[in-house]
């Protein structure tokens, strides 16, 4: 695990999944903190992106604060799963879409700017796929997304 990452890349992932600098030259700020230079940081991060380890440098949002969202699930026959999953993912409002081991086997998260768009989108996905969608909206969160540790314990 992580043998393909350079030491700098490992440190970047360990330190900058949260609290990314909002200085005009953030990669230089990071370089100063890690004792290297801006070009090395930019090149290490570009390489993580090219290799598919980094999705993006960006934000995750507190549920309900930036728009509307819901976890949702469908029961899809195995032989149609690939096709239906692709139809679901085609909607740009889907930000996660996983096959899980259960009778309810397709699980996804729908995010939209407001509640009305959420309802419209879910109805449109039902119409497109022909399967009912069950919604499990959040009531309360107890632990937020804090990123991932690279060290295995």
């Amino acid at each position: 695990m992580s043998t393909e990452l350079t030491r700098l890349q490992t440190r970047l992932i360990e330190h900058f999944q949260r609290g990314f600098p909002t200085t005009p030259r953030p990669f230089e700020t990071i370089a100063n903190e890690l004792g290297t230079n801006e070009d090395a940081v930019i090149s290490a991060i570009s390489d993580l992106k090219d290799k598919g380890y980094l999705d993006r440098i960006g934000a995750t949002y507190a549920t309900g604060r930036a728009g509307a969202s819901s976890l949702a699930a469908m029961e899809v026959p195995d032989d149609q799963l690939e096709k239906i999953a692709a139809q679901v993912s085609h909607f740009t409002e889907i930000n996660h879409n996983y096959e899980r081991e259960d009778k309810l086997n397709l699980w996804f998260v729908v995010t939209t700017a407001d509640q009305a768009s959420l309802d419209t989108t879910i109805k449109a996905i039902e119409a497109k796929t022909g399967f009912p969608i069950y919604r499990m909206p959040m009531i309360e969160h107890y632990r937020l997304d804090l990123g991932f540790a690279l060290k295995w314990n």
Partner: peptide
């Protein structure tokens, strides 16, 4: 347990109320 991941991308927050994917648009 998850078996396969079909999509992981940013949430569509901050978008206009009219969904682009509800009209005819290119593939996501």
């Amino acid at each position: 347990f998850s078996k396969q991941c079909f999509t992981q991308r940013a949430g569509k927050y901050g978008a206009p109320a009219i969904s682009a994917s509800l009209s005819a648009s290119g593939p996501a």
